[in-house]
Structure formats: C-alpha cells, structure tokens
Amino acid sequence: MSNITTIHPSQKNKKYIYEIHFLRAFACLAVVGVHVSATNYGMNEDTWNWFTYFLNQIGRFGTPIFAVISGFLLFYQVKRRGFELGHFFQSRLTKILFPFLIWSLAYRLLLYVYDNQSLGDLGAEVLKIVTGNSFYHLYFVVIVIQFYFIFPFLQKIFRTQTFLLILTFVSLLISYNLYGFNPGLEGPLGEFLASKSFMPIWIFYFAFGGFLAYFWDEIVQFATKRPWKMLVLALILSAGAVVEYTINGYVANNRPSNLINIPLLCIAVIGMYPLLSKWNVLKKPLTLIGQYSMGIYLIHPMILYLFARHLPEQYWHVNYVPAMFIAVMLIAVIFIRVVQMIPFSSFVIPVPKIKKVKNVSPPEEGNLEKKQLA
C-alpha cells in the first residue's frame, strides 16, 4: 500500500500517526477556547460578546473529538499489537487514573484556599472525585475511565471492520436516544446517570474512534487526496454550527447534531494534514500542542481561575481574549516542561515520548515520525 500510513512490518509497533496528532491539537485548542471565553463571560457579569460567544460555541467540537481520539488509540493498538489485560490496566492506571486523582485533589485544594470551600465528610469528597465534580473539566476524564471498564469486552467482540461497523451503528443509536436522558431516580446515582459524566451518552464517539482505527488506510487515502475539499468541509461544518447556535441559542458539546458533525470534522482534519504540514509555522506548534494536550487539558482551568482572581479588571475586555488565549497556552506548555524535569512526572502529567526513526514513506506523500502511542 502506497499511502502515507505504509510502514515496514518490523517497524509497525513504532508508528505514530500525525493526522491523529493534529486532530488532538485542534481538539485541545477548541476546549481551551471554550473555557477562556466562558471565564471572560463570568468576569463580565455573565455577558457574552459576539466573539466570545462564537469562540465558546465553535469550541464545543473539542470534547467529542477527544473521545474519538481515545477510542481510536485503544482500538488501533489492539489492531496492531493485540490486547493484554494486565498491561492495559497498568497503563491506564499510570497514564490516566493517577494524574486524574492528583489533579482532582489539586483543584479541591485550590477551591479550599481561594473560595473557602470547606471539606465535607470523606464520602462526599470521594463522590466528588469519582463523578468528576472536583472541577468543571474533570468530568471528561471520568467518562474516559468508564469506557476503559467496558473496552476489554468490546475489543474481544469487535475486532474486524464488519463488527466495527455494527458497533458504530449501535453506539449511534444509543447516544442519540440517551440525549436528555433522565432515569427518574433521586439521589447521587440518579444525578450521575442524568449528568454529562455518564459515559453511554458519549459511546458513539469512542466507537467512531474504533471505526477510524479499522478503516484507517481507506479513510486516509480518500481524505488526504482532497485536502482543499476537506478544508471547505471543515468551514461548512463550522458555519453550520454558527447557524445552529444563532437559531437555537446556547448549545452543549453532546448535542445530537454533533453525532453528524464530529465524524465529518474528524475526517476533514485528517484530510487537511498534507496541506497544514507544509507550513512549519503551523506544523511545529500543533505538534507540540498535540503532544502536550493531556497536560494542557488538566492545567489550563487552574491558570484561568488564577487569572480571574489576580488580573486587573481592564484585562477582561473582549479585546484581550486572543492574548489571554495565547497566554494560557504558553503558561501551560512552560508548566508542563518544568514538571517533566521532576522524577515520576508522568504520574502528574503524562507526555508521550517521541522516538525519531528513519522515514519509510515516500517523501511526496508525507513524512512520518515513529512515536509511542499515548
């Protein structure tokens, strides 16, 4: 096969796919955009400017794309390397669960120091953590952890393209029918099942990630031959999102329209890679953001929280929003680099290690680095 994903069999376990890396960078930028704009909204007496509202709503693509990437990486590893249960849970424990617990405690301490939020009893505090309520962004990590519990069963059953098609279709029905789900239960369990932290609402995005993994060669071959058309598709989807929130008002990231938008947008970004990778001014920053995306996701709300309590009022004018966005990204990257100097830093912020090896793809079809999958 002669597309950009072709590698020698002896090197296949070292392969890293830049298209997914770029997709992860775009998802990260979108999520940060949502939270920068939301913080600006809160600091302006809950008032939107047209720009902050646009940034907030267009960024609602980010979280579902992260779910797609999570599903892709899991199914892609099984496709290439097989599955070993002990290694899987050990890997997830060190790369996801430990950082999640550490940052949950860090944000709880932040609220205790700045907002004087007293600690509740042990059961209440544990419940906050396991439901992702320690801070507003941690719910997504809880969603991913829930998926880890069912993934060993899914990968056992759905290991072919045909079965992945079935899984994707069934998951689409589940996610669609669970939109606005209310179990009719009271108490913590009912609240959790009705919340956006309940993983089955997001199951389609994880399954679509598996679909991408098992149809990767076909999708890349189709999309990367049409980079300009993929760019147009991405712009059309973005324009459609603007029309949607203009007509319907504020929309969430798990809205039903994203069940169509997200697959198309993922394919569009994959197809845009050959176009974007020609310019180092885009390629290098996006590569770094993709590599640091997990750390940026974990730390950026804390940066915004501290900004909100220490920056003078004039810096919350809408004109400063782009500068604040850049500042948040730069501070997050610098923080991650500093943390990497600390022993056992991967338990705090996991950063994939890059292994550069000789390119094996034809130069006209794109250069590849081989990297350990996150």
Rank of each mutant, 00 (worst) to 15 (best):
N3R: 10
N3G: 06
N3F: 11
T5R: 00
T5P: 02
T6H: 15
K15V: 14
Y16A: 14
C28T: 14
V32Q: 05
M43L: 15
W48A: 08
F51L: 15
Y53A: 07
L55F: 05
I65L: 15
F66N: 06
I69Q: 00
V78G: 01
R80C: 05
R80T: 12
R81F: 10
F83W: 08
L85N: 06
K95P: 00
I96N: 13
L97D: 07
L97S: 03
F100H: 03
L101I: 13
Y112M: 11
D115E: 14
D115T: 06
Q117P: 00
Q117A: 09
G120T: 05
D121W: 03
V126E: 10
V130P: 02
N133Y: 01
F135P: 03
V141R: 01
V142A: 06
V144W: 03
V144M: 06
V144H: 06
V144L: 11
P152I: 06
P152K: 08
L154K: 07
Q155D: 04
T162S: 14
L165D: 09
L167D: 00
L172F: 15
L172T: 01
N177I: 02
Y179W: 12
Y179L: 04
L185S: 00
G187Y: 12
L189M: 11
E191C: 02
M199E: 11
M199R: 02
W202V: 05
W202D: 10
F206K: 02
F206E: 04
G209A: 08
A213Q: 09
Y214A: 04
Q221T: 14
V232Q: 07
L233V: 13
L237Y: 03
V242F: 12
V243G: 00
E244P: 00
N248I: 08
A252K: 13
S257T: 14
N258L: 14
I267D: 07
V269A: 01
P274I: 09
P274K: 08
N280D: 14
K283C: 01
T287H: 06
G290T: 01
Y297L: 11
I299T: 03
I299Q: 01
L306S: 08
E313N: 13
V318N: 10
M324D: 05
I331Q: 06
I334D: 03
F335W: 12
R337T: 07
S345N: 11
F347R: 00
P350H: 10
K353T: 09
S361D: 02
E369Q: 13
K371M: 12
K371T: 09
